[in-house]
Design a protein around this nucleic acid. Structure first.
Length: 952
RNA sequence: GCCGGAGUGGCGGAAUGGCAGACGCGCUGGAUUCAAAAUCCAGUAGCCGCAAGGCUGUGUGGGUUCAAGUCCCACCUCCGGUACCA
């Protein structure tokens, strides 16, 4: 009884594709048959110990369908897969169990590979890579050395070799060491003392992005900020290019906006406030006249950055960040104790504490004053943690009348509020603002600003900036929220830096650094007996054997860099390596690079919207500047697949007495517990679907409709126990059903809840397709007697060609759900036919092949009489084309509306002219009576669509 | 707060400004069966009606249009992200 049995079919065809190298891709695209190259890429997974999640195959199935589709259309498709295999979980596992991270990583990769193959994805497995492969990270290290060897020429907006960096004469004169130090300060990869997020529990420093609400992203441990010598990548130099490059990318508008906001370009002015003796202000001012601003600022000024130079007259005080270098100098003796205490408190405060709660403003007065350059009046300088040391100049001029934060601070500390912008008449608290008792952040007419009064603030912005520039007191300036990329981690399981630190005779570092020569890469990880962090902000590689730590090169002794790179490093360039995965001589062959790049379609989760995509774009631009790649941007088109949630759950709430509480009354208290109206904590109870009924636009308890029940699908999580395992789905329904269901759920980009009965639904469809073609009552696999060698009749041809067209168009536009719906309609139609022409059956099997490839291969073989050695497997068939003439109908039904409501239907030729259609409409049995005694005011005929008669 | 996205049957969803609810799930009825499963057929937005048919319906309120789920204005709810960037 050959019923559809995926457990038998699927492994068989997977083995066939593997032995026949069905999806192997040639080194270079073959464009001889008129196709084009297509590089279709998935965001590669981190191979976690949990195996694949049903979220993974969503994007993977989409790209697999696209790849198979374009391959059948004659294009050259590159569709690879790999693993982002460095990362914290493997190391945490190693710390717990003592098992080497590589052992666990390899095991997980093996499991992921098994699962991916089980789903029938047509990857070219010969190109598979893992970021942990020595042959791969050798080139990650090489790219780091490219960054190390590059400086950014701001004028040319170009990364250039470090030996082309112009050396100022005075540096040149100071000798070789000064020159080396000068170069080091300009490299794209440089070391700096940075305030870093030190997480004692993880024993490592984290990037800003890995800290959420002051807690570590992994494990939610508290994070402190301490200064540490770190490797940084100068991504800020590329801010402008990263911003400009977004323009031409075919990415979702939301993602582009996220990147723009992350880069956070703002323009305004830098202004120097005099902090010397007030009596000497005029003399100081005269001395500055017409000279450009000094870099770094002179000793006697406090420099601020502002985007609102038009409000300069309203600056009534200044604030510097607690970490600002001038704090000590500006603090007077009387204030010293208070300031010291405040700074200390601020440095111990985690980010969480700084941002938690209502964020009431705190700060202390330094005792000093600065002189507002526009009117010469002294204003007090405060220290407050609402000003960030890392943005702008770390100091601000505070304009409480026109900045909410400054206003809150001024109110808290009784500082004056002086309005200098008149809010437009429609602004509600206009009078309060003008009286110095309110805050208005918009623009308007300038007041209280001397010569600038009466002009519009936009105009005054540039006027004041120009005036200050002319006086040598300010200049136009641009700032970015984007910070340089903290690139080192105090971890074992990452790429070692290919950097050596020179040692003197006593074994002390001289400060001179040297790149490991290219031919000595990769720098491998040392063998360690134990992976536990020692709880100091010092990398585990410090524990490596001396034979690894110390190197002698050209007679000089060096110590290796012991930091490792962050997980992002390997994922920054993997898309390049797939193109030339086995190249020993270069990271990529430029000929192959030019042939395949850029990526034509990149599919992955929105959680990588900013970091991975920004970091890769940055590396790509550096590689582009240094001649390693030809295109300016790596990813042409980007799609974010939506999240897949767990099955919909109904949740009710019960109080301590076990009585139901309507979800309408549930609130969150300050500890974010769910509480009822009286404030006592309630517990969430899962309610079975059968005990729930719809009432109005919500659900309620069947036994007591006054109790409202929440209905919601939640994010899949181990804790909630709603994770769907792809292995189980394949076991029960088959890989083709899983693939089809993932695509049938809804649009690729939408967030969608999982539904196991929906998987059963698409399985039912595949069963129907099977029975439409196969004789399921026979003992061996053979065609259903209904499949006949005769041509389609007109209606069958219309269904067949209409389906070819719809599936083709929908696959091109990634509307997989509607393509599947159309194949279901085809199947419903032909199942009802007792004569099913072979051409139609072959057609549906070919259309189905990208979506459900295993069953399609099996049915194709069956249609071919069991032997496909002559015709080839269906994955290699050409994609069918539709015959437009088969779609033409001799008569079509057209709705007739009277005043916009459908009142009848007429049958007309599809190309009937307006007069004919109108005539038929007016004479229609249903319509004619409704027209008597009325006048037709207007007739609208939309050819082929409808008729609308407007009557009175 | 701010920034995105989304609100359409019991559920997932479909619909170049042109017949709202394709397709699937679920449900109801029927056929088949000793029975069940499986399968096949029919029905399935709500209300009124024996029926023919009518009325109301795409989060809410307005507007544009011969015609609005779709366009415009105001608002509500949910989901996701984000947090003092001067």
């Amino acid at each position: 009884m050959p019923r559809y049995n995926p457990a038998d079919i699927e492994p068989r065809w997977q083995a066939y594709w593997e032995t026949h190298q069905t999806f192997a891709t040639a080194d270079l695209p073959d464009l001889s048959r008129g196709g084009r190259k297509r590089y279709v890429l998935d965001m590669f997974p981190y191979p976690s110990g949990n195996g694949l999640h049903v979220g993974h195959p969503e994007g993977y199935t989409a790209t697999d369908i696209v790849s198979r589709f374009y391959r059948m259309r004659g294009d050259s498709v590159l569709h690879p897969m790999g693993f982002d295999a460095f990362g914290l979980p493997a190391e945490e596992h190693a710390i717990k169990t003592g098992e080497h991270p590589r052992v666990q990583t390899d095991r997980n990769i093996e499991n992921f590979t098994r699962q991916l193959k089980m789903l029938g994805f047509g990857y070219d497995w010969d190109r598979c890579l893992a970021t942990t492969d020595e042959a791969y990270f050798r080139w990650t290290q090489a790219i780091f050395l490219v960054l190390y060897d590059t400086w950014f020429d701001t004028d040319k907006q170009l990364g250039r070799p470090i030996d082309q960096l112009p050396i100022p004469a005075e540096v040149q004169a100071a000798g070789e060491a000064a020159v080396a130090e000068y170069r080091d300060r300009h490299r794209l990869a440089y070391q700096d003392d940075a305030l870093v997020n030190w997480c004692p529990a993880l024993g490592t420093v984290l990037a800003n992005e890995e800290v959420i609400d002051g807690l570590s992203e992994r494990g939610s441990h508290p994070v402190q900020r301490i200064p540490l010598r770190q490797w940084m990548l100068r991504i800020t130099s590329y801010a402008e290019r990263l911003l400009d490059g977004l323009e031409d990318l075919d990415w979702p508008a939301g993602i582009k906006k996220l990147q723009r906001d992350w880069i956070g370009r703002s323009s305004g002015a830098e202004v120097d406030f005099f902090i010397g003796d007030a009596d000497t202000f005029e003399a100081w001012k005269a001395s500055r006249a017409a000279r450009p601003l000094a870099d770094p600022p002179a000793e006697d000024v406090l420099r601020v950055y502002t985007t609102r130079p038009d409000t300069l007259f309203g600056a009534t005080y200044m604030v510097i960040a607690p970490e600002h270098p001038l704090v000590e100098r500006l603090t007077t003796a009387e204030q010293a104790k208070e300031v010291r205490a405040y700074r200390e408190q601020a440095s111990f405060k985690s980010d969480r504490e700084r941002t938690e709660g209502d964020r009431a403003k705190t700060g202390v007065f330094t005792g000093s004053h600065a002189i507002n350059p526009v009117h010469g009046q002294p204003i007090p300088i405060w220290v407050a943690d609402y000003v960030l040391a890392t943005y702008g100049t770390g100091a601000i001029m505070a304009v409480p009348a026109h900045d909410v934060r400054d206003y809150e601070f001024a109110v808290a500390f009784g500082l004056p509020v002086v309005p200098v912008i008149e809010p437009p008449a429609e602004v509600e608290d206009r009078d309060a603002v003008l009286a110095g008792r309110g805050c208005f952040v918009g623009t308007g007419r300038v007041i209280g600003s001397g010569d600038f009064d009466g002009r519009d603030s936009a105009e005054v912005k540039s006027a004041i900036t120009e005036k200050l520039a002319a006086e040598g007191l300010g200049r136009q300036a641009i700032n970015y929220k984007l910070r340089d990329w903290l690139f080192s981690r105090q971890r074992f399981w990452g790429e070692p830096f290919p950097i050596l630190h020179e040692l003197d005779d006593q074994g002390r570092p001289t400060g001179v650094k040297r790149a490991v020569p290219l031919d000595q890469l990769p720098v491998r990880l040392p063998e360690l007996a134990d992976f536990r962090p020692h709880g100091r902000p010092e990398p585990p590689l410090e524990k490596a054997a001396e034979s690894w730590l110390y190197v002698t090169l050209d007679g000089v002794r060096y110590k290796r860099e012991t930091n490792t790179m962050p997980q992002w490093a390997g994922s920054c360039w993997y898309y390049l390596r797939y193109i030339d995965p086995h190249n020993d001589g270069a990271l990529i062959d430029p000929v192959k690079e030019r042939a395949w790049m850029p990526v034509d379609l990149y599919v992955g989760g929105a959680e990588h919207a900013v970091l991975h995509l920004l970091y890769s774009r940055f590396w790509h631009k550096v590689l582009h500047d240094r001649g390693h790649v030809s295109c300016p941007e790596p990813f042409g088109r980007l799609i974010n697949q939506g999240m897949i949630l767990g099955e919909v759950e109904f949740t009710g709430y019960q109080n301590e007495a076990g009585e139901w509480v309507s979800s309408k009354e549930i609130r969150r208290d300050q500890q974010s517990n769910r509480v009822d109206a009286s404030g006592s904590v309630v517990k969430a109870v899962v309610v079975a679907e059968a005990d729930v009924e719809k009432s109005g636009d919500s659900f309620s308890l069947r036994e007591d409709p006054s109790i409202r029940i929440d209905s919601r699908a939640h994010k899949m999580s181990k804790a909630r126990g709603n994770v769907v395992n792809p292995d189980a789905v394949v076991h029960e329904y088959g890989a083709d059903s899983l693939r089809l269901y993932e695509m049938f759920m809804g649009p690729l980009e939408a967030t969608k809840p999982w539904s196991m009965s929906g998987v059963g639904g698409v399985r039912g469809f595949l069963d129907r397709v099977w029975r439409m073609i196969v004789d399921d009552r026979a003992d061996e696999l053979r065609l259903s007697p209904a499949v006949v060698d005769e041509p389609c009749d007109a209606e069958q041809a219309r269904v067949l060609h209409g389906t070819i067209r719809k599936v083709t168009e929908d696959t091109e536009s990634l509307s997989f759900n509607t393509a599947i719906a159309r194949m279901m309609e085809f199947t419903n139609f032909f199942t009802r036919c007792d004569r099913r022409p072979r051409e139609a059956m072959e057609g549906i099997v070919v259309l189905l092949a990208p979506y459900a490839p295993h069953i399609a291969e099996e049915l194709w073989q069956c249609l071919s009489g069991g032997d496909i050695s002559q015709v080839g497997c269906v994955s290699r068939r050409p994609w069918p084309t539709w015959d437009e003439s088969a779609l033409v109908q001799s008569q079509i039904e057209m709705p007739v509306q009277i005043n916009g409501k459908v009142r009848g239907k007429i049958l007309v030729a599809p190309d009937a002219d307006e007069a004919t259609v109108l005539g038929a409409a007016r004479e229609d049995d249903r319509i004619a009576p409704q027209l008597t005694g009325k006048t037709i005011v207007k007739s609208i005929v939309v050819p082929g669509r409808l008729v609308n008669l407007v009557v009175k």
